[in-house]
């Protein structure tokens, strides 16, 4: 009788351990912050790329308008891929694209824009990467769709045709 209980207990423990390990190994252990939306945009002051003028977020993002804040850098390869899509999005007059140049050299960033075009209405120059953290970003590229001072949607990674189409539908 005792032997039977021992066998059942051992099998049960083995099954539990197997299930726990199987489930744990299935899940990715890379943490990605939740894409929180409907958050107010952060309050910050930053320097503009071309004029070097210091500006507050409230001056940059006016109410009753759609904005796409795009974090980019000349050294970021996926930014190059999404850039033509941003250029295409500039044709839509309902949205303004604001760039946040992340930890870049000004010369390289200028060359990047000269080569691929400038879709940005304004560019924030974030030399130390501090402004990107204020936005809760942790890499490039990332984009935030903003309306009335609220982040409607956050896109981690490069935009693709489907996502740009989604943006078009959201701002309709």
């Amino acid at each position: 009788m005792n032997n039977k209980i021992l066998k059942i207990t051992t099998t049960a423990i083995f099954i539990i351990i197997f299930v726990v390990f199987y489930k744990a190994l299935q899940d990715t252990n890379i943490y990605t912050p939740k894409k929180k939306s409907n958050n107010e945009i952060p309050l910050f002051s930053a320097n503009l790329f071309y004029s070097n003028k210091q500006i507050n977020s409230s001056e940059l993002f006016k109410l009753d308008k759609f904005y796409l804040l795009n974090i980019w850098s000349s050294w970021c390869v996926p930014c190059r891929t999404e850039h033509p899509l941003l250029m295409d999005l500039t044709k839509n007059k309902k949205i303004e694209i604001i760039g946040l140049n992340y930890k870049d050299k000004k010369n390289n960033a200028e060359n990047f824009l000269n080569e691929l075009g400038n879709p940005y209405q304004e560019i924030i120059f974030d030399k130390e990467g501090i402004n990107a953290i204020e936005w809760g970003a942790f890499g490039v590229p990332e984009s935030f769709l903003i309306n009335n001072g609220i982040v409607i949607k956050k896109y981690i990674g490069p935009l693709n045709k489907e996502l740009v189409e989604e943006i078009r539908l959201l701002i309709k």
């Binding site: 930890k103 990467g129 501090i130 953290i133 942790f138 890499g139």
Partner: peptide
């Protein structure tokens, strides 16, 4: 990493 270095600067700030 670039991100960690920015965090260090921000903590300092």
């Amino acid at each position: 990493s670039e991100f960690a270095n920015s965090m260090k600067v921000l903590v300092d700030k």
